[in-house]
């Protein structure tokens, strides 16, 4: 099949980019979307044109490195699928495909389809963990975890941190991402001691990173390649509000002076 691509090309450091049209010919339906782009890139290089830059690594839907919009939908038309897993058999001969990077204030474009998602790391650094140092753990079976809870923790923990939720959200909110980590750890007995502080710190960091506010639109859930349920946002709100009443004072004033962006340690 043949498809026409309209790809966002943006030079590094440039404030603006533009859509450029490419023809992808003799595309096999067994190709993945990224393999189709590989072939286009090979042809561009042979012609002496710079290839399209896009992030990718595992190419099996788990590292969260890949991701862009296809015809306005994060990760393209197939639900529960990252672009690296998306295959060309889902498109038709003659299709026009518009390919654009994630767009969000918190995810500045670096080049073409590559964006900077380090804000996600800073949200995790703010509290997305259980504070247990190596060597201090009790036996793995010392604390039973009901199967049901373990499964629900796993549902939330499946998040790959790709950023599709932010890209799809009209408010560019990171609520699904943040809620997923809060829920994962909240479901487990090991996560209970820090549960209130964790919710406070992560939510406040999320705000500092210029993500928008969640208004329960649900686009995030619809595009999430791991189909994480919007329920995690409810849990995040619950934990945050609860903690704001009971525990707010110390962590909020002590290490989060309002308005000042956190360095978070990333270079």
């Amino acid at each position: 099949m043949n498809v026409t691509l309209h790809v966002w090309r943006q030079k590094q450091g440039a404030g603006k980019g533009r859509m450029v049209r490419y023809e992808a010919r003799n595309v096999s339906e067994d190709m993945s979307f990224l393999e189709m782009l590989d072939v286009v890139n090979e042809e561009l290089i042979e012609k002496g044109e710079e290839p399209i830059a896009f992030d990718h690594d595992c190419r099996e839907g788990i590292c969260g490195m890949c991701g862009f919009m296809i015809n306005g939908v994060a990760h393209g038309p197939v639900p529960g699928t990252t672009v690296c897993e998306l295959h060309m058999r889902h498109f038709k001969d003659g299709d026009d495909l518009y390919i654009e990077p994630w767009r969000a204030r918190a995810f500045p474009v670096i080049k073409d389809l590559v964006v900077n998602r380090s804000a996600f790391d800073r949200i995790i650094a703010a509290g997305g963990y259980i504070s247990v140092s190596t060597g201090s753990a009790p036996d793995g079976n010392a604390i039973p975890v009901p199967k049901e809870k373990a499964e629900r923790a796993m549902d939330a923990a499946a998040c790959i941190g790709c950023g599709a939720c932010v890209a799809a959200c009209p408010n560019a909110a990171a609520a699904l991402f943040t809620g997923a980590k809060i829920t994962h750890l909240a479901m487990l007995p090991q996560g209970a001691p820090e549960r209130p502080q964790r919710a406070l710190k992560m939510v406040l960091q999320m705000k500092e990173e210029m993500f928008g506010h969640c208004t329960n639109i649900g686009e995030c859930e619809a595009v999430c390649p791991k189909q994480i349920s919007i329920e995690v946002i409810a849990r995040m709100n619950h934990d945050f509000i609860r903690a704001s009443w009971s525990e707010r004072e110390a962590p909020y004033r002590a290490d989060q002076p309002a308005g000042e962006p956190s360095a978070g340690g990333c270079q």
């Binding site: 247990v132 190596t134 604390i143 009901p146 994962h184």
Partner: peptide, 11 residues
């Protein structure tokens, strides 16, 4: 160690 960190192993 992993259980203590919150790794959601199958149960």
């Amino acid at each position: 160690q992993c259980v203590a960190q919150g790794v959601p192993f199958a149960r």
